[in-house]
Nucleic acid binder design. Structure first.
Length: 613
DNA sequence: ATACATACC
DNA sequence: AACTGGTATGTAT
């Protein structure tokens, strides 16, 4: 195994950030100007959060300092950077508290607790399942839509803003992703993989987990690494794409292994307790999926860099972290992970968010909401979903993120309903903070109605036991309807089914009464509030007879007509279909310029017409 | 149930 | 000029 253990990090010394004042940012700047090669710790940490994670994915040869400096130069002074520093400060504060607690704990003996935790570890190690051969295949980064390896040498990573990428690598040509091609390739690959494990699980667009234990049993001449090589070879033949792979006794380790021999190699970790222990002992914690930059730094600051050190410190981890994190880290420290591949993925939410140039105008914000609710409704329709929680997400011009969620008692899917709920939330945000300007808005629908299996009643329904009833005549059972939440007394389940189906047919339209039920939001929005634009739209257009799209355009037109002089700003960034206020025809435009040009032409035409008559 | 932070690709 | 978008999950309240 040629695993690079030379993990260098910046957190050797304990970080005391006592002198953090408001103009500290300027100090940072000065320091950087003073000494070109030395940024201070705080900036280091911020940069680390923003930039490259040297642990993951082919970045070992990058001159990190140089890249970080470029990123710093470009983004310093930006609202984004200031916000990142702010968050960094909060995090540092949290770590400081943890350290204090850690030092106190170190003073104590904790012998009993240590023994208990050691016993638990031994038990977990003894019970660990080493019978499965899990393979993780990683095709990521071999396609153009993310940074390829050439580009990565320059420190370009996917999702890096183009302007920074261009600074890092002048010859970089940005190629728009080819989704169709991507899809075809992805299908090819899955076909190959399914012949080795029909129960394989696509973990993302370019990652797959599979269990080859069965295949190995049926084909005793193969070894795990031979099977994996064959799979990679077949993928290459069919798609001309290279893939890296990891073979290990569980998902967590397989994923780490697949990362070790990129972009066209494989790494096997034997199903042997000693091998696993050796491997994990020196493994930097940041390599583990689920440990991100924040957790990594937190642990680093406690002196924990490898999983081996993590294991030694689990007693403190238990005191310092929350139970779920403790449980997770305990498994990590022992190299224990899932051995069963679960490919039954179920969506829990669906959302759309858009970034745009800062907007503080109320009307424009509602316009954005309409755009986004339209897009969300499209996606929701494609997936045939109905949900009862709507979350509005806003990012201020200062990059602060706020989310507000409102759950109603009916399941909705139509654009007008999503907009309606979203608007309630946006109303309250605007009321709370009237002149705030935002750079992003998002909407999410969640708490879905599980209608896929037409509701398997026995699983889904809470049966209410009448424990006190011994009466033989009381055969009726009570069920809680998952739609209306009423308790229904019936003789047979199918009677109840009828009720549920009835309810399902009635969830389509949400009434105003929805909002009366919701105390929190009605405190702020009494019923006699001035009629919203939305309500006017509903009143004036018979929405039940219009399609979503009609509704959208009518709503948009009305909103625009309300504030004709603002129309130029209403389409600041997203491409959208609009009704020209002059000629009344619909036009498609993605920039203000396009729209303005159209309007200019229309205005000119108008003038010419008037002149002629 | 809601708000927010963190993580992953 | 300029630091994404979609989803999940953990934690605090």
């Amino acid at each position: 195994m040629n695993y690079d253990m030379n993990y260098d990090n910046n957190y050797d010394e304990i970080n005391e950030c006592e002198n953090e004042e408001k103009d500290e940012y300027n100090n940072v700047k000065e320091k950087i100007n003073e000494n070109e090669n030395k940024t201070d710790k705080v900036t280091d940490n911020v940069l680390y959060r923003l930039s490259l994670n040297p642990n993951k994915g082919g970045l070992q040869n990058v001159d990190k300092d140089k890249v970080n400096k470029i990123i710093y130069e470009v983004s310093k002074g930006s609202a984004f950077f200031k916000n990142a520093k702010e968050r960094e400060k909060i995090h540092t504060e949290r770590i400081k508290e943890m350290k204090k607690k850690y030092i106190e704990l170190k003073k104590r003996t904790l012998d009993y607790e240590k023994q208990k935790i050691e016993n638990l570890m031994k038990k977990m190690e003894n019970e660990r399942d080493l019978s499965q051969y899990i393979v993780h295949i990683d095709m990521s980064k071999s396609m153009i839509s993310t940074a390829n390896y050439e580009e990565r040498k320059y420190g370009v990573r996917s999702a890096m803003p183009g302007y920074i990428a261009l600074k890092l690598c002048k010859d970089l040509i940005l190629v728009p992703p080819r989704h169709k091609k991507y899809h075809e390739v992805s299908l090819e690959i899955r076909k190959v993989i399914s012949s080795y494990d029909p129960n394989y699980c696509p973990a993302s667009v370019d990652e797959v987990f599979l269990n080859i234990t069965n295949f190995l049993e049926k084909n005793p001449l193969y070894t795990p690494s031979k099977v994996t090589e064959e799979i990679r070879q077949k993928i290459f033949e069919k798609t001309k794409l290279t893939a890296s792979a990891g073979i290990a006794p569980n998902l967590m380790l397989a994923k780490i292994c697949s990362d070790m021999n990129k972009p066209n190699g494989q790494t096997e970790l034997k199903n042997d307790a000693n091998e696993v222990e050796k491997f994990v002992k020196l493994l930097p914690i940041g390599k583990v999926s689920g440990i991100g930059k924040v957790t990594e730094r937190t642990l680093n600051e406690l002196g924990i860099k490898t999983c081996g050190e993590l294991k030694e410190n689990m007693i403190y981890i238990r005191e310092l972290f929350k139970p779920a994190t403790y449980q997770f880290l305990l498994n990590v420290s022992l190299g224990i992970g899932k051995t069963i591949i679960n490919n039954k993925w179920e969506r829990k939410s669906i959302s759309v968010e858009r970034t745009f140039s800062n907007i503080s105008d109320e009307q424009e914000l509602y316009n954005k909401l309409l755009d986004i609710s339209f897009k969300l409704a499209q996606d929701v329709e494609k997936e045939n979903l109905k949900g009862k929680s709507v979350t509005l997400k806003l990012k201020t011009s200062g990059f602060e993120i706020l989310t507000r969620c409102l759950t109603i008692s009916k399941f909705i899917h139509k654009q007008e309903d999503i907009y309606k709920v979203g608007k309630k939330i946006l109303d309250s945000c605007i009321e709370e903070n009237p002149n705030q300007s935002y750079r992003l808005m998002g909407l999410r629908l969640s708490s879905f109605l599980d209608s896929k299996k037409n509701i398997s009643l026995d699983k889904f329904v809470k049966i209410i036991d009448n424990k006190n009833t011994v009466d033989i005549l009381a055969q009726k059972k009570e069920y809680e309807c998952p739609v209306c939440y009423k308790v229904i007394r019936v003789d047979y389940l199918n009677e109840f089914e009828k009720h549920v189906n009835n309810c399902l047919n009635n969830v389509e339209d949400i009434k105003q009464s929805e909002f009366i039920e919701n105390k929190k939001y009605n405190k702020k929005f009494k019923l006699n509030d001035k009629e919203s634009d939305y309500k006017q739209i509903i009143k004036n257009d018979k929405i039940d007879n219009t399609t979503s799209e009609d509704y959208y355009h009518k709503g948009k037109q009305r909103l625009n007509n309300k504030s004709n002089n603002q129309i130029k700003h209403d389409v600041s960034s997203t491409s959208s279909k609009l009704i020209c206020p002059i000629c009344k025809s619909s036009i498609f435009c993605s920039t203000n310029e396009e729209l303005n040009r159209h309007i200019d032409i229309c205005l000119n035409n108008d003038i010419i017409k008037n002149y002629e008559t």
